[in-house]
Design a protein around this nucleic acid. Structure first.
Length: 866
RNA sequence: GCCGGGAUGGCGGAACUGGUAGACGCGCCAGACUCAAAAUCUGGUAUCCGAAAGGAUGUGGGGGUUCGAUUCCCCCUCCCGGUACCA
């Protein structure tokens, strides 16, 4: 390590040298040490899409800052990294470039690993894993069998998007305006048998545990609670009028039962299908429904359409005949595929009833006696029952109980707890995933794979023809001998990639274990102390991972109830978009790197043109960096130009981690400028020789103020990093300190001593953020060893003492003056000083002082009247 | 549609528990250095009035609570994330 500073800050020279030194010394390799407090710091692992994007840089810098800070607190810190390597983009690359997914994925991993190393992240690379590696996925195949034996796995049919031209299943993302993204053909719904994990068996625990997860953001917990959607209600069976059977529905509002005026069933409901056989018009309607999206967002936004079925049901209380309709918004996969419709008290039912002339009845009224207008819309609030015969005049719980009791007595209903959460569909009809380890005998019966025959390897040498998974056409894969020696065939579906990402954090603890899924080392490291990743994972990934962890716990594999003690959700990285309208109403997007922006005298953006042709482009919205909007800024170009430390510093400085970040190239320049000036200040300081001890020397007012600032900054930055996770304000505080250090002359030994203390503090406080520069500066300031192993600075309470403080003086809440008072001034003294101030007198003259509010240490507010 | 989040100078953001709105940085303007440019340094920079002192206005819009509201409550607009096969 160098100990004399070059005059110029040259990241291209120092960063590779420092990284090489880390690598040689193996400083990030960790093992279990029961004597030390552990800290497991984890970022959501990346999908190896090709190159790092700014979202990755931001995510991993946040994690690295926290990991390095915890290390300086003396903890045994583990920070691993791996690859969420299965997924759809690899198949798209295979189709587009005719390169096998395995090859594409592994070369992406190699490139991106290099980029991560170039950024200087403190990872223990010995623990690296890729989920497409058979040594990884064999254990989830093994665990699938444990879940199967426990009854937590089952096979049932589910609806998929089917592309009739490409003869393949499409992801929701691949369906654009109801058509396949490649074929352009209208997509069909198709029901096929698929594998499910019984996550609903853990619904109550997943819900209840949220109350004890104090270190998760409230927003994420609320979203998970709503997603699980526990509700208590009544399951009611309506008799079909012709006596041919019953129609079962679930309702959370039995108090509105007397207001039910029709029933609605899903297009796939047996009643609808039966009726369509005799009615071509109905059959045509069901056919249009068959082309409907499977996505909730699309279904809920489309026109609500329906048709009457030639059947009625009997109301269980009144005996009235209620019509049964088929409606395109009722989901077969949710509940029983049928709902009772109460248009008076449900807005969607109201709109449907209005559209088709169905009756609307009021059966609940506001408890305060006010009236409602059912002509204007439904009234969905809780109130008191009306028009409900012998059930009139009851509030919600009383009406619920009375109606439930009567129906239960007759065996027509029972109270039930229902969840919005559905079981986890883990089958994917895709090639690039972990093979589901089951087989079928010649009669089609399910046969689970034997542990001894695992892993079921995904063939990687494949010829990709067309767009469908090649597995189905590979007899060498599908033809199999069953564990008992009979012939059969192998399942060609693969797991949802959320399966892999649901347990990788446990595997990191015992990454090289080849005798089990995890070993006892996981008991030392788990749970993860802080998990950092995008807010877009608030529900799906984080709920699946919580469930999987509990399932592993119940299989005796891990000990903790929850996998992630603390969660930090980062916002997205955004950038302005630039485009031109091209034919067909489409837009051609241009990358910001290829666009020049014009500004007016105030720096306001007025126009943008394409550098290539000098012609204008339209300035679009600021959106999440994405391929489709072509607004990604390549971090590599910035790293090459400014170095890793500048990129890290800028991403941490630009916004707090949980907010979205709008990328600005010029602000990166500012971060670079700051590092250059810190470098220069330090270099000038050490060039004059290191100062001796300042022990015992008295400080003047300026130096006292500087020392106070140094120690206030230590307190502020420590709190910002460890409690608030506000790295932007931590950096701002350090910048202020550096400005203060630079403008305070340091000519004599005492002043040079204070400056030395200040520079040491700055280097330590910044070292988690800019570790390369900090290492070199630390050495230059006269220290041996790693700055990351130096102790975090400690606040000197004595340095914080102040003689005088400033108080704001307000008159009627408006700031009129700032006064200085002794730090120990009492309330009366503050009031007197405030009232004596000339500008305060101006506003109090000729008025009566009603009261004076003194907020100690902050302000005095004089309330006057007249 | 539903669930969650957000909106503050020209821009990113700060104000942590209801107490000085705009810290820090970018940009811009002026000046210094320079033959010149770059780099660097110094000063200014919410808007309006004013030479200044100071004053008025101002945190997406409308209302409310309070001595005092970016912060708490109610209503609304727009933007973003998720919506179960993108990861």
């Amino acid at each position: 390590m160098q100990d004399r500073l070059t005059e110029r800050y040259d990241p291209a020279a120092i960063e590779p040298a420092v990284q090489e030194h880390w690598e040689r010394a193996g400083v990030f390799r960790v093992t279990e040490d029961p004597a030390r407090e552990k800290f497991y710091c984890l970022c959501m692992f990346p999908y190896p899409s090709g190159r790092l994007h700014m979202g990755h840089v931001r995510n991993y810098t946040i994690g690295d800052v926290i990991a390095r800070y915890q290390r300086m607190q003396g903890r045994n810190v583990m920070q691993p990294m791996g690859w969420d390597a299965f997924g759809l983009p690899a198949e798209n690359a295979a189709i587009e470039n005719n390169v096998p997914p395995a090859e594409w994925t592994r070369s992406n991993i190699d490139y991106m690993r290099g980029q991560l190393k170039r950024l200087g992240f403190a990872y223990d690379w010995d623990r690296e894993l890729a989920t497409c590696d058979p040594d990884y996925y064999r254990w989830e195949q093994w665990f699938f069998r444990r879940l199967y034996d426990k009854g937590l796995v089952y096979r049932a049919t589910a609806v998929v998007n089917w592309d009739p031209v490409d003869q393949t299943v499409l992801a929701n993302e691949q369906v654009i305006d109801g058509c396949g993204w490649r074929s352009g053909a209208p997509v069909e719904r198709r029901e096929i048998p698929q594998w499910f994990l019984r996550i609903t068996a853990y619904a109550d625990e997943l819900l209840d545990e949220l109350d004890r997860m104090d270190e998760w953001p409230e927003a994420v917990k609320t979203m998970q609670r709503n997603w699980i959607g526990r509700s208590e209600g009544l399951s009611i069976r309506f008799d079909l009028s012709d006596g041919s059977g019953q129609l079962e529905v679930f309702t959370t509002r039995p108090d509105t039962l007397l207001g039910a005026t029709y029933m609605a069933v899903a297009p796939e409901h047996p009643l609808a299908i039966a009726a369509a056989a005799a009615d071509p018009q109905l059959a045509a309607f069901l056919e249009t429904c068959r082309h409907q999206s499977t996505s909730e967002a699309v279904i809920e936004k489309m026109d609500k359409l329906g048709m009457a079925l030639p059947v009625t049901v009997r109301h269980p209380l009144t005996g009235d005949a209620l019509p049964v309709w088929v409606a395109n918004f009722v989901l077969m996969s949710y509940g029983t595929g049928a709902v009772m419709s109460v248009p008076g008290h449900d807005q969607r039912d109201w709109e449907f009833a209005r559209k088709y002339g169905l009756p609307i009845r009021q059966v609940v009224a506001p408890a305060d006696g006010s009236t409602i207008d059912l002509e204007a819309g439904a009234w969905p609030e809780y109130g008191v029952t009306v028009n409900s015969g012998r059930f009139d005049g009851l509030d919600f719980p009383a009406a619920f109980d009375a109606i439930a009791a009567e129906l239960e007595r007759d065996g027509r209903a029972e109270r039930r707890v229902q969840y919005r959460l559905r079981d986890w569909l883990v089958s994917r009809q895709r090639y690039w995933g972990c093979p589901i380890p089951v087989l079928y005998d010649d009669a089609g019966n399910v046969v689970t794979e034997d542990d001894t025959r695992l892993p079921v390897r995904l063939p990687e040498e494949i010829a990709w023809e067309g767009v469908a998974s090649p597995l189905r056409n590979m007899p060498e894969f599908t033809r199999a001998t069953l564990p008992d020696g009979r012939t059969g065939r192998r399942e060609t579906d693969t797991f949802d990639t959320f399966f892999e990402s649901s347990w990788y954090f446990s595997r990191f603890c015992s990454a090289n274990c080849d005798t089990g899924m995890v070993d006892e080392r996981a008991d030392y490291w788990m749970p993860v102390d802080i998990y950092i990743g995008g807010i877009e994972h608030a529900v799906l990934h984080l709920l699946y991972a919580r469930f999987f962890h509990k399932a592993m716990r119940d299989a005796g594999l891990v000990k903790s109830d929850e996998p992630f003690t603390r969660l930090l959700t980062q916002g997205m990285v955004c950038k302005e978009t630039y485009y031109r309208d091209v034919s067909g109403g489409r837009r051609q997007y241009f990358n910001p790197a290829d666009v020049e922006v014009e500004t007016d005298a105030k720096g306001r953006v007025t126009a943008a043109r394409l550098t290539r042709d000098g012609q204008p482009v339209t300035i679009g919205a600021v959106e999440k960096m994405s391929k489709s909007k072509n607004n990604g800024v390549d971090p590599q170009a910035l790293i090459d130009r400014y170095g890793a430390d500048t990129v890290r510093l800028y991403t941490m400085f630009a916004a707090p981690p949980d907010q979205s970040l709008e990328w600005s190239d010029s602000a990166v320049e500012g971060a670079f400028r700051f590092l250059k000036s810190l470098w220069r200040l330090t270099s000038e300081h050490v060039a004059a020789g290191l100062p001796g001890s300042r022990e015992g020397a008295a400080l003047g007012d300026d130096l006292k103020a500087l020392r106070r600032h140094i120690h206030e900054t230590i307190a502020k930055v420590s709190d910002d990093i460890s409690r608030r996770y506000k790295f932007n304000t931590a950096i701002a505080a350090v910048m202020e300190l550096v400005n203060h250090l630079a403008r305070t002359p340091a000519e004599d030994a005492v002043a040079r001593g204070v400056r030395h203390e200040g520079l040491e503090t700055v280097v330590l406080l910044l070292s988690p953020i800019v570790p390369h520069a900090a290492q070199v500066l630390w050495a230059a300031l006269g220290h041996d060893g790693e700055v990351m192993d130096a102790a975090w600075p400690v606040v000197d309470e004595a340095a914080l003492a102040r003689d005088a403080i400033e108080l704001v003086v307000q008159v009627n809440g408006r700031k009129r003056a700032v006064i200085a008072v002794p730090a120990d001034a009492d309330q009366a003294a503050c009031e007197a000083a405030a009232l004596a101030e000339a500008n305060v007198k101006r506003f109090t003259a000729g008025t009566t002082v009603r009261k004076i509010i003194v907020v100690p240490g902050k302000l005095v507010n004089v309330v006057v009247a007249g």
